[in-house]
Design a protein around this nucleic acid. Sequence first.
RNA 1: GGAGAAAUGGCAGAGUGGUCGAAUGCGGCAGUCUUGAAAACUGUUGAGGGUCACACCUCCGGGGGUUCGAAUCCCUCUUUCUCCGCCA
Length: 423
Amino acid sequence: MLQVPFIRENKDDVIARLAKRNIDATEMLDEVIALDEERRAIQTNLDNIKAESNSISKEIGNLFKSGEVDKANALKEKTGVLKENTKSLEQELNEKIDALSELLYKIPNVPNEIVPAGNTDEDNEEVYREGDVPTLFEGALPHWELAKKYDIIDFELGNKITGAGFPVYKGKGARLQRALISYFLDKNTAAGYTEVQVPHLVNEASGFGTGQLPDKEGQMYHVTADNLYLIPTAEVPATNIFRDTLLNESDLPIGLTGYTPCFRREAGSYGAHVRGLNRLHQFDKVEILRVEHPDNSYNALDGMVDHVKDILKELKLPYRILRLCGGDLGFTSALTYDFEVFSTAQDRWLEISSVSNFETFQANRLKLRFKNSDGKNELCHTLNGSSLALPRVLAGILENYQTENSIKIPDVLVPYTGFDMIS
RNA sequence: GGAGAAAUGGCAGAGUGGUCGAAUGCGGCAGUCUUGAAAACUGUUGAGGGUCACACCUCCGGGGGUUCGAAUCCCUCUUUCUCCGCCA
């Protein structure tokens, strides 16, 4: 959520930058500023009336003490009108605040200057590429065929137990998945991230804090009996660790990493692109998250990108990095780098990580602040990224490491799997 | 699930109708002392709104109510603790 003073002082710049998202925010921003002015006017009015009743109350107290009961009772009469006014003004005030909040929830984060303009993923800007795409032998298979051939992932079984998009990993497939989780967590903790295990269901306040609510409600599974949401990413519970928190400047930076399953309804996305592991309702992910001093957040973002690069290099997977264009940028993000691994057998790129700087957008909702060197409370910057999303890494490994009659295991994973080949 | 107790500033912990935004301690910050540090001492130190700056307003778990006036009384919700029951 953007801050009203920021909007007020940088209106033109905000409009220009939101234009990269193909949004003309002029009207919305004008309304925000107008509503805020109205709100302040009502507030001032209300405050004055309250100040008057406060002083009358004090006087009544004093009169009672000195035994002047008649005078005190006479004063009581005076407060009736004030009370009426207070009530109606309070109602007006709340209406303004609600209208203002509702509007603010609809305005996405302001893209960073270097975000390219554009509408779709085709306008994303490739900023890095590493690894040669292997030339596969004749008859190489896509990962869902490989999964079946070696009996390591059973999609049909998941259909029976739950439904489409909930695969069952078996034998070496399950072990490889567990190996990846351990490997990722080890890499992250070695880089200074503190490992956490967080709840997989969150309440409304948490969903709101990270921006999934109210506008992406339909994308999360909702447990209505208890009004809880299954997490779509560890970002939600992990970032909400810091909701309503005032940090010392010396506490920064903070880095956390956590493994969780992720649940996504993915309503409406069906077809060839969701085959196999490409798009699931439940998948595993290891997340990294940072809380940073505003001055350092873009450094930190670069550091996170380098960290993910390092992991992919060790896995020896061909990948590229995209700087997302305005149209493809997430609602809460100011700058996002997507990592895509090349799925050789499908001849397409698969997103396996998304690393973002949210600047103060989440922190403002979360009320996550630190006391700066001037003693003022200032919003922190939050960042997060996947390191990494499991299914598509698995797909990449299966497809790129396949031979005629086996799948090799990347060297770095062998200590974790205990085997170097699936056959 | 049943019975009871509790929720106060960064933390701990007083405060049961008016002078309480709130004692005290710890922590933080500044200073004295010291070559430096520690200790000790002195001062200072909650958040949000509002203002050029003051004034002023709001906030004692959330919401509602009683009252001229609520941290304090009432209702309700949430959470925590103790006991009982159930249970991985």
